[in-house]
Amino acid sequence: MRLNYPPNVRIVAVPCTGRVDMIHLLRAIEQGADGVYVAGCMEGECHFVSGNLKARRRVEAVKKLLREIGIEPERVEMFNVSASDGPRFAAVAREMTERVRGLGPSPLAKDHPLDLHLQAVG
C-alpha cells in the first residue's frame, strides 16, 4: 500500500518502541530535528508486553527535560498506531507535521529555518 505522508518525515525503524531511549529522542532534537515522535503499537498489543508503555514514559521524561531547558515539549510525542493501520500512520504524520509547523522551526535548526524536520521512530 502506498502511504501518503508528508515527505519531511524521516523514519527510523526499530524492532520495538521499547528499544527507544531518551537519548535517541534528544539526539534528534540536538541535531536539529524540529520534532520527533514515537509511533508504537496500540497499548496492550506490544509483542514484548510493555515496550510501548516504557516508550511512553521515556517520551514523558524527555518532555520534562525539554521543558527544563526551554524547548517546547510538544516537539516530542508518543503515538499508538496499529501496525496494519496505514491510514492512521499517515494521519499521525500529518498531525505532528501540523503541530510542529505551528511551533515553528527548532531554535537549534538555525541552518535550515524553513525546512520541517520530523523524525518518526517506531
Partner: peptide, 17 residues
C-alpha cells in the same frame, strides 16, 4: 554512561538555543 549522554545532550541543546 546513559545519564552522561542525556545530560550532555540537554546542556548542548540549551546552550545552542
Amino acid at each position: 554512561t546513559k545519564e552522561v549522554g542525556i545530560l550532555g545532550s540537554a546542556l548542548r541543546i540549551a546552550r545552542k538555543k
